[in-house]
């Protein structure tokens, strides 16, 4: 290609623009991210040195891990069933309450602007307390045991389900809602017949995610005395019984993977 042939467009278009400076938003973002990184790294005294100096200590524990006490997996079978039951019940109750909360948190289904804003605030407070925080609270409220675990997970699930589902509700096709209004439906009928069918697939998919999440979370909240395999884990850790911890570790892996596969299969059928 030769550049001798002159461009044939108008003169306005032929003025070359100057390369613009990167946008202020990008600069702010980069500087802020760098500053937070430095602050955080100093704050937690970030270093990788132990990886080289103390690897031997880690190796000892890892060796212990490679000799799991297989029998222990079956000894604690009951604790596993309890963990699964907690997850099932908490998912069921949490998702149903979450759906109702979602309906109340969306302006599509709750016209009153003050009311749905208040619901949104309550939900973000619920969401901002971590699962382990709920577990501590519920153990205090109803005592040590599975009930505390179920209640903690219910609160945790309401937060997640309500947020995701209410965003789905905000984004539904307004056509059917208009049609329901035009045919004289009241706001409950409208929510049931024009909104609910549209968000159902998303809601079911979120519920499955939450169930998977609950399996993991129910182990975690057991650490706070909320029943299930987490309690067992806490006891074995306290005894430094690595071979038993390792067995729990392997079983966790298998159970989570199984639930993952099952929920993937279900999700494929829903979609």
């Amino acid at each position: 290609m030769t550049s001798t042939a002159a461009p044939t467009r108008g003169p306005a278009a032929s003025a070359r623009p100057r390369k613009p400076a990167p946008s202020w938003a990008l600069w702010t973002g980069i500087i802020a991210a760098t500053a937070i990184t430095i602050w955080s790294a100093l704050g937690i005294e970030f270093t990788l040195a132990p990886l080289f100096t103390d690897a031997a200590r880690g190796w000892f524990v890892i060796q212990e891990f490679f000799a799991p006490n297989w029998g222990f997996i079956f000894q604690v079978g009951n604790a596993w069933l309890e963990t699964l039951s907690i997850a099932v019940l908490a998912s069921l109750v949490g998702c149903l309450l979450g759906l109702i909360a979602a309906m109340l948190a969306s302006k599509v289904t709750l016209a009153n602007p003050v009311a749905h804003q208040v619901v949104k605030w309550v939900l973000s407070v619920i969401r901002s307390i971590p699962d382990i925080g709920w577990a501590f609270l519920m153990v205090a409220f109803v005592g040590v045991g599975s009930l505390a675990g179920i209640l903690a997970l219910v609160m945790f699930n309401i937060g997640i389900i309500a947020k995701l589902t209410s965003e789905s509700i905000d984004a539904v096709d307004p056509g059917p809602i208009e049609a329901a209004d035009a045919s004289g439906a009241n706001s409950f009928q409208r929510a049931r017949w024009a909104v609910y069918p549209q968000v159902l697939p998303n809601f079911l998919s979120y519920s499955l995610y939450v169930f998977e999440l609950n399996i993991r979370a129910s182990i975690v909240i057991g650490l706070a005395g909320a029943g299930g395999i987490g309690n067992v884990l806490l006891v074995q850790l306290g005894r430094f019984a690595w071979e038993n911890v390792s067995a729990i570790f392997i079983a966790t892996f298998v159970v989570v993977l199984a639930v993952d596969l099952a929920s993937q299969a279900i999700r494929r059928r829903i979609a």
Partner: peptide
């Protein structure tokens, strides 16, 4: 099954 297995102290509710 889950309700039966979980052995929760429902009264506390």
């Amino acid at each position: 099954l889950a309700v039966w297995l979980v052995d929760a102290n429902w009264i506390r509710l």
